[in-house]
Simulated scan of single mutants.
Amino acid sequence: MIEKREFKDLAHVDHEWLQARHHFSFGKYWDPSRMGFGPIRVWNDDEIQPKTGFPMHGHQDMEIITYVREGAITHRDNMGNEGRTEAGDVQVMSAGTGVMHSEYNLEDEQTRLFQIWIEPRAAGGAPRWDAKAFPKSDDRADQLEILASGFDEDIAGGALMIGADARLYGASLTKGTAITHEIAEDAHVYLVGSAGQVRVNGELVDTRDSLAIRDVASLQIEAVDDAEFVFVEAWETQNR
């Protein structure tokens, strides 16, 4: 099963300082038929105006990943963490037993990002935050990279740690490049284009379009032009 959802069909909530598009039910947008995809609970496509952002607020029992597409976001929390995450880089937060945090665009330009929530493999645990600037070099081009993961072997290889049975992949492909990814058994895969166009198993994915993928053995991904995309591969905990 491959279900495509175009960017123009996403729910749009206008907060003036924030233009939010929701892939799944979130906040003011409620659709009982779109409550998530497997353990992937939230995928928000946010545009945050300069010098604005999300004031201090709380979360519990959720793995929250932020992938910055353009601009930068500055994080602060009640654990004493503070960090600035730029375009192409990633921050992660395990809410655990509870955390308070803020996310602000302190830049002079608009920030665009994907915020992704994944259900943890277990409730509770100590909250934590981390971020990583992934190298923007030729070594990163034309291949999949594991940006965040709940598995020790990936974390040892440089991925950010999350407390979920999931991996976040990202890739920047030059026009005409094709790659293949074998999907693990029972996985839910949710792929969103970040820039350019890719063709995935014959489906054209434009910037900010998405594919929900289930019961497919592999992905054949070709860059129609210079392109960037990310996807989550996640499992229901009882199936791991």
Results as ranks from 00 to 15, higher is better:
I2Y: 02
K4A: 13
K4P: 00
V13Q: 14
D14N: 15
H15F: 12
E16A: 05
L18T: 00
L18Y: 00
Q19G: 04
H23D: 00
F24E: 05
K28F: 01
P32I: 11
S33Q: 14
V42W: 01
N44W: 07
E47N: 08
T52G: 00
P55D: 05
M56T: 15
H59Y: 07
H59N: 13
M62R: 13
R69K: 15
G71Q: 05
A72L: 08
I73K: 06
H75F: 08
N78K: 10
N78F: 03
G80N: 01
G83P: 06
R84P: 02
E86L: 13
G88N: 10
D89Y: 09
V90P: 11
V90M: 11
Q91A: 10
V92P: 10
M93T: 00
S94D: 13
T97D: 08
H101T: 02
N105S: 06
E107K: 05
L113I: 06
L113R: 14
F114K: 01
W117N: 03
E119C: 03
P120G: 07
R121Q: 12
A122D: 14
P127R: 07
R128I: 02
D130R: 06
F134M: 06
F134H: 10
K136S: 12
S137I: 07
Q143A: 10
Q143C: 09
A148F: 13
A148S: 13
I155S: 03
I155M: 10
G157R: 13
L160M: 11
M161Y: 06
A166I: 01
I179V: 15
T180C: 00
H181P: 01
H181E: 08
I183Q: 02
V189D: 00
S194C: 14
G196C: 06
Q197H: 12
Q197K: 14
V198F: 09
G202Q: 02
G202W: 04
E203D: 11
L211C: 03
D225V: 07
F231C: 08
